[in-house]
Each structure stands twice: as C-alpha cells, then as structure tokens.
C-alpha cells in the first residue's frame, strides 16, 4: 500500500424519490482508497453500504440522485459531474464491478466467449474475436479455471455459483481496471468456495498493485482480507480506520456491539449468560 490516492470521495449523499416522499439512505460519506489497498465497507442490512457503492458507480435507478463535493477517480475524472457516456467508458475500463449474484451479471443467452468479446467491443479496444478469445482464455486461467475452453463455449446456467463468480471476476478485470468494487461477492456461496474466491480476488489486487472496495456484512471477510475498514450504520459512516484498530479496538458503540455479536467458541452455556 502506498500513499497514492486512487479514489477520493467527499460528502457523498444519495436521495431517492419514493411514492411516500424523499428518503436519504446515505449521507455525508467520505471515502479514500489508496493504491494497493483493500478497503472493506461493513454493516448490517439496510445500513446503506450497497447504495454507497452503487452511488459512486452511478448504478442506481432513475428515481435516485447522487450528490457529492467530489468523487475523484484520481487522474481520470470527477465522477460526481461525469456524463452518462463518460461513466460508461469508465466502468469496465478503469473501475471493475463484481456484484453479489453472479448469475445476474452474466447474460443467460450469450456464450461466455461472446460476453468477453462484448466487453472489448463496448470499450472499442479494437480487439478482434480471435484476440478476445486469447485474452479470455488467459483471464479464465488467471481466476483458477482449469478447463477454460469448455467454460468459454458454455453458458452461465451450466456453471456452479463459485465458477460463475470466477467468470464474473475475469470479465470485470479483463481490461485491467486499477480499482475494483465487490458488493458481497461471496454471500450465498459455500464457505470453502468463499475462501477460494476471496483468496483469488485479493491475490489479483495484490500482485497487480490494484485497489479494491469490498462491501460485506461478514466481519470475518473484513478482518481477513481488508487493510482498512469502514463501518456504516443507518446511512452514515460511524467509524473507519486500520483493520487492526477497528476490529480489535473499536471506538464506536455500534462497532463494539457488532463485533460483540460474533458467536464465540466459549461453549453453548455461555451464550445464554
């Protein structure tokens, strides 16, 4: 990790128009990501952690508005004021996104090979089909898929959840974005698969000196894979800092309560008391 800033978000807020009035699911978010680090955003359901990420990436629905003093993707653009078109060219090329449900990210009627080619086409890289195939094969190998040819010619529904998430990660990193966002990337997967996927994705970040924002409700994921942690509660950041400090010596009452809720191996009778 260096001191070089990759992303600098200041005073981000999201408002959503609903039939019952305007709601503010996220307020006053400051978030800095440095080169080479993994920042974890943690919190319980409804705390606004996913909305924050989708707000930064401008992936929220038409009824929502994102405001911020700045969303500086350093050296590239200020996303707070970027046009739709600019956002589209940035997502995929400079920022990769891995969502919770891999099957929602994959197109069910295109072969996996075609989906890699679509990424190349969307960003006008000029890569031909054969070239895209070569890149895809090496990407799939890179995410630990042993028979990439078979996966390439297949479709999403033929994959297990873990395999599908590997494919999504390969797709998201095809163009070598320097910053990755992963929103609950392993929720719903088995523990053994989760460990493999997280080892893989954090390895990708480390070896290439990239950066990642990892959103999760799982404190274990934060503690084991992130260097810095941001704790969200009811739409605001209540605590942030080095993982060692936040997880071992939390300052805010909510963080303390959350960490205190982790089941302890003290035997079942102690749970009651």
């Amino acid at each position: 990790m260096s001191d070089e800033l990759v992303l600098d978000v200041r005073n981000l807020a999201v408002t959503i128009d609903t039939p019952d009035g305007v709601v503010n699911p996220v307020r006053g978010i400051d978030l800095q990501v440095h080169r080479g680090e993994i920042v974890g955003i943690m919190g319980e359901s409804g705390c606004g952690k996913s909305t924050t990420v989708k707000g930064i990436l401008r992936l929220l629905g038409p009824n929502s508005h994102v405001t911020a003093d700045t969303i500086n993707l350093v050296g590239k653009a200020d996303l707070a004021h970027a046009s739709k078109k600019v956002m589209e060219s940035i997502r995929g090329r400079h920022i990769g996104f891995v969502a919770q449900n891999p099957f929602g990210s994959l197109n069910p009627i295109y072969s996996i090979e075609r989906q890699f080619y679509e990424v190349q086409k969307a960003h006008k890289t000029g890569a031909k089909k054969a070239e895209s195939r070569e890149i895809a094969l090496s990407m799939l190998k890179g995410v630990g898929i042993v028979a990439p040819e078979r996966v390439l010619s297949g479709y999403a529904h033929q994959l297990s959840g873990g395999m599908a998430q590997r494919v999504v990660i390969a797709l998201a990193t095809t163009l070598g974005p320097e910053l990755l966002f992963a929103d609950e990337p392993t929720t719903g997967l088995d523990a053994t698969v989760q460990a493999q996927i997280l080892d893989l994705i954090s390895g990708l970040v480390r070896t290439e000196n990239r950066s990642m924002v990892l959103v999760t409700h799982d404190l274990g994921v934060i503690a084991q894979y992130c260097q810095r942690a941001v704790v969200m509660y009811q739409g605001e950041i209540v605590e942030s800092g080095d993982v060692m400090q936040v997880m071992v010596n939390p300052q805010h009452e909510y963080t303390k309560k959350l960490i205190g809720s982790v089941p302890k191996a003290e035997g079942r009778l102690n749970v009651a008391r």
Partner: peptide
C-alpha cells in the same frame, strides 16, 4: 474467517472438493 484480524487461517483445499477443478 475469523473476525479477529490477529487470527489467520490459510485455506487448504480438499481433494474431493469438486468446485476447485472442474466446471
């Protein structure tokens, strides 16, 4: 995955674990 960053486990795969090797 321990919620205590001071405890580390290295994941070791299992030979019978189907998800590692093949689609």
């Amino acid at each position: 995955l321990s919620a205590d960053p001071r405890e580390r486990h290295a994941y070791q795969s299992y030979a019978g674990d189907l998800s590692v090797t093949s689609p």
